[in-house]
Simulated scan of single mutants.
Amino acid sequence: MKSRTAKFSIGQVVRHRKYPFRGIIYDVDPVFSNTDEWWLAIPEEVRPHKDQPFYHLFAENADTEYVAYVSEQNLLPDSSGDPIRHPQVEEMFTRAVDGNYHIKMARRN
């Protein structure tokens, strides 16, 4: 499998191309790196290719917050400017005045 350069970056807010959820990226895999069970659970007609970046998101929809694993082909930038309400966002990111998220620097002893 050949990996590609990721189109999106950690801290970027994105939305799903087909389903009504959005989230903030907290990690990126250069190619698919989940279980075969997860992969096979996706209906074949909508199953994405494995040879593209996959993103770990602190995600949310109208009802709940959760963690999602999404292929690059299914993501679009989110330009709403609305904050992400997922409870883990504040542990990892700070939100700047301009609405962008930045990863927190690790504290050193």
Score class of each variant (00 low, 15 high):
E72N: 07
I24S: 02
R107A: 11
E44I: 12
D78M: 04
Y55P: 00
P87N: 06
E45R: 14
A68Q: 09
F58I: 06
T94F: 05
V13D: 00
P30R: 05
K18F: 11
A96E: 15
I42V: 15
G11K: 01
H102V: 01
F21A: 04
S80M: 03
Y69H: 04
N61W: 08
L40Y: 13
R4M: 09
F32E: 04
P30V: 03
P83W: 10
Y19S: 11
Y55K: 02
S80H: 03
H49L: 12
F21L: 12
H86N: 13
F32Y: 15
D63K: 15
L57H: 09
A62V: 14
A106E: 05
D29V: 02
Q52G: 01
P83K: 09
N61Y: 08
Q52R: 05
P30L: 04
E72R: 01
Y26G: 00
S3W: 08
D27I: 03
P20Y: 12
Y55F: 11
T5N: 10
A96M: 14
K104L: 10
N100G: 04
N100P: 00
S3H: 12
D29G: 01
G11V: 03
R47M: 07
E60R: 09
N74L: 15
M92D: 01
M92F: 08
R95L: 07
S79A: 11
Y19Q: 14
R17K: 14
A106Q: 08
H102R: 12
L57M: 10
G23S: 05
A68L: 03
S3F: 10
